[in-house]
Simulated assay, not measured.
Amino acid sequence: MGGSSSALKVCTDHQGGINWLSLSPDGQWLLTGSEDGTARLWSTADSQCRGHFQGHESYITFCHLENEAAFTCSADHTIRKWDVMTGQCLAVYRGHTSIVNRILVSKDYLFSGSYDRTARCWSVDKEKPIQEFRGHRNCVLTLALYSSKDLLEDSEGEESEEEKLSKDFLVTGSTDCTVKVWWVSSGRCHQTLLGHTGAILCLILDAPNRELFSGSTDYTIRTWNIVTGEQLRVIKEHQGAIICLEVSERGGSFQGTRA
């Protein structure tokens, strides 16, 4: 690449900093969550704002976009679901008692992590939590989800929603320096992964290889066996906090990004 570059498109309608971006699965829309307490939907074709989601009473910390619905969480302790086409708020999920840092949407379920030291599981179609994960000694910053069936060969036959949920595990990373693995069906802590000496800022799973990667303010990336909880590797080359991880399909490698 040359020594200089210029922006291809600029989206400038927010009145505050942008805390998160989420691209729709089809790549046609971009959702932004801002310090101004609103989310906006942009067309990736022409950079025009096509949706403005207002209702949160404080800044938005994270957002997630699907093709027909958008989800936002906020320092106002709530999560909201929005209709992408109309901008109408479809649901408000209340229950956390502090800032909601992160959400994760998986089919009919919504997971959230908060400064109140808990994570929660919600039914997307309902506005009450169906499970609470309590055990961290400080705020929950990041989430990941996997199913035990992803680690095994596909089983035959149809399963009920209850049977599917019983095989799901939620992984949480916290400023208490630990990673915890929880049974989604019961809310019980299955494993606590110890080793980091700083806050856990990011998690990513490599289910085919049964590995979990965690990045921290202790400048390290750690690799764990997701089945046994054994720490496999510690990567120490970064000179700053690890804020983002991405797994590559090429040989099962991964990339880390530091602050």
Results as ranks from 00 to 15, higher is better:
residue 89 C to I: 03
residue 170 L to H: 07
residue 156 E to T: 12
residue 51 G to P: 02
residue 162 E to I: 06
residue 100 V to Q: 03
residue 163 E to F: 04
residue 154 D to M: 12
residue 169 F to M: 15
residue 227 V to F: 05
residue 40 R to Y: 01
residue 56 H to V: 03
residue 139 C to V: 10
residue 165 L to R: 13
residue 6 S to F: 07
residue 1 M to T: 09
residue 55 G to C: 03
residue 217 T to D: 13
residue 21 L to V: 04
residue 109 Y to N: 13
residue 9 K to P: 06
residue 182 W to T: 04
residue 111 F to L: 05
residue 147 S to T: 12
residue 242 I to K: 05
residue 8 L to D: 06
residue 95 G to D: 02
residue 162 E to S: 11
residue 220 T to A: 10
residue 250 R to S: 13
residue 44 T to Y: 04
residue 72 T to A: 05
residue 92 V to C: 06
residue 17 G to T: 09
residue 4 S to G: 10
residue 50 R to W: 00
residue 235 I to P: 03
residue 168 D to L: 09
residue 255 Q to E: 11
residue 143 L to E: 01
residue 219 Y to M: 12
residue 62 F to A: 10
residue 163 E to W: 01
residue 163 E to H: 01
residue 53 F to P: 00
residue 55 G to T: 01
residue 173 G to K: 02
residue 69 A to Q: 14
residue 120 R to F: 03
residue 202 C to H: 00
residue 187 G to R: 08
residue 57 E to T: 05
residue 197 T to M: 12
residue 234 V to P: 04
residue 154 D to W: 08
residue 210 R to F: 01
residue 241 A to Q: 10
residue 250 R to G: 15
residue 237 E to H: 10
residue 235 I to A: 13
residue 115 Y to I: 09
residue 35 E to L: 12
residue 60 I to R: 03
residue 110 L to H: 00
residue 13 D to R: 08
residue 241 A to S: 13
residue 77 H to M: 13
residue 19 N to S: 07
residue 1 M to A: 14
residue 164 K to Y: 05
residue 220 T to S: 15
residue 143 L to A: 09
residue 1 M to I: 10
residue 133 F to A: 08
residue 72 T to R: 07
residue 119 A to L: 05
residue 247 V to T: 10
residue 142 T to M: 03
residue 234 V to D: 08
residue 174 S to N: 06
residue 76 D to P: 05
residue 135 G to I: 01
residue 82 W to K: 00
residue 199 A to I: 01
residue 57 E to C: 13
residue 208 P to E: 06
residue 111 F to A: 09
residue 250 R to I: 10
residue 24 S to P: 00
residue 6 S to R: 15
residue 128 K to E: 15
residue 133 F to R: 01
residue 112 S to R: 01
residue 133 F to L: 04
residue 156 E to M: 13
residue 194 L to R: 15
residue 137 R to M: 13
residue 240 G to E: 08
residue 157 G to R: 04
residue 18 I to K: 03
residue 12 T to K: 15
residue 10 V to P: 11
residue 204 I to H: 01
residue 71 F to T: 06
residue 248 S to I: 05
residue 74 S to H: 02
residue 179 V to C: 07
residue 221 I to Y: 00
residue 62 F to R: 05
residue 183 W to I: 09
residue 194 L to D: 12
residue 70 A to Y: 01
residue 189 C to D: 05
residue 45 A to I: 06
residue 119 A to R: 03
residue 32 T to G: 10
residue 145 L to Y: 06
residue 105 V to M: 07
residue 146 Y to F: 11
residue 63 C to P: 07
residue 249 E to I: 04
residue 57 E to P: 09
residue 206 D to R: 02
residue 224 W to M: 01
residue 26 D to R: 11
residue 150 D to F: 06
residue 69 A to D: 10
residue 105 V to T: 10
residue 59 Y to S: 09
residue 46 D to T: 11
residue 135 G to K: 03
residue 101 N to A: 02
residue 85 M to S: 14
residue 248 S to M: 14
residue 31 L to K: 01
residue 178 T to C: 12
residue 131 Q to C: 08
residue 84 V to T: 08
residue 148 S to K: 14
residue 19 N to V: 06
residue 181 V to D: 11
residue 76 D to T: 07
residue 69 A to S: 14
residue 250 R to K: 15
residue 201 L to V: 05
